[in-house]
Design a protein around this nucleic acid. Structure first.
Lengths: 159, 159
DNA sequence: TTAGATGCAAACGATTTGCGCGGAA
DNA sequence: TTCCGCGCAAATCGTTTGCATCTAA
């Protein structure tokens, strides 16, 4: 099970990675204070291609000293409200968080080991958002698309 | 926010509703015993167009007497394993469950009141499953697509 | 100076597990 | 009779809240 045994260095081919300064500027503009924790969390998220759980965030390199879960929850909540990160449900008890990149991403999740891979392909649901809005009357629509399956490693293990 | 204040009677236009007997037969074939709880749960799920939480299931009409959450969890787990229901994450603390209908469904969720509506439209992700498999090496892929937004009622309230 | 952040501890609530009993096969 | 399913109680664990303290602005 578990989660963060892998750090894909490669990112999305289309997605220009934000610089630390850009991110920080966005947060400042949103009224957040420049805190050491804020900087570290942004940096961890920035260098992670995959969504990360708060538990893993706590132990991530670069997060100094004590790292109270409550504080992290609050920080991420704030970041989500300001539109800097997005919260992602991946059928695990713990929610995952990822930076809101310059464009949308979808994920593949292994239902055996919980490993998550970020997909680098055009999302077919994006263009449906307006149609869904028209049909249902919902406003401010965004979406979340996840694929679930068994990763190669786990498939090999079972064989 | 809340949950089951609405029961859409209408179902998917394309989705033939299973009969109680068909469902029961599937469960029996899967090795499950015919229990009163099993029957009631299946019936509640069958007549619900939207996914339902265990908490709501507990209080649903037709579930008699005490209804221990632990028992429900275990039953739904069994049903999920056997492929009768699917577990759905909707950004709420509690997971939702729905019958595996004759074809796939996607949902729209209100981020204010938590109301869930089932979409009756062609899912663009379905055909991507094989492509995702090819790209990532994952096997036995299925997907989950949710739209989030503000429902008309909540939008009106805010105005 | 002052409102926003943080750490710590306790409260919550969904999910999970152990166990003995009762009922379906 | 046998094994699966159930109710009950207790344990887990992610998330949330209250509160006193600290600190960026």
């Amino acid at each position: 099970m578990a989660g963060s045994h892998k750090h894909h260095a490669a990112g999305c081919t289309k997605c220009g990675l934000e610089t630390p300064d850009e991110l920080l500027a966005a947060c400042r503009a949103a009224g957040l204070r420049r805190t050491h924790l804020l900087e570290s969390v942004l940096e961890v998220l920035r260098t992670h291609t995959e969504p990360i759980k708060i538990g893993d965030l706590q132990q991530a390199k670069g997060i100094r000293g004590t790292c109270d879960p409550a504080t992290l929850y609050r920080l991420l909540q704030r970041l989500e409200t300001r539109g800097v990160v997005r919260r992602i449900g991946l059928h695990e008890r713990a929610a995952h968080f990822a930076l809101r990149r310059t464009h949308h991403h979808d994920y593949v999740v292994c239902r055996e080991c919980g490993d998550v891979a970020t997909l680098d392909m055009d999302c077919p649901a994006e263009k449906l958002e307006t149609e869904v809005g028209r049909r249902t009357g919902f406003r401010e629509i965004y979406h979340e698309l996840q694929f679930y399956g068994v990763c190669p490693r786990c498939a090999a293990k079972s064989a």
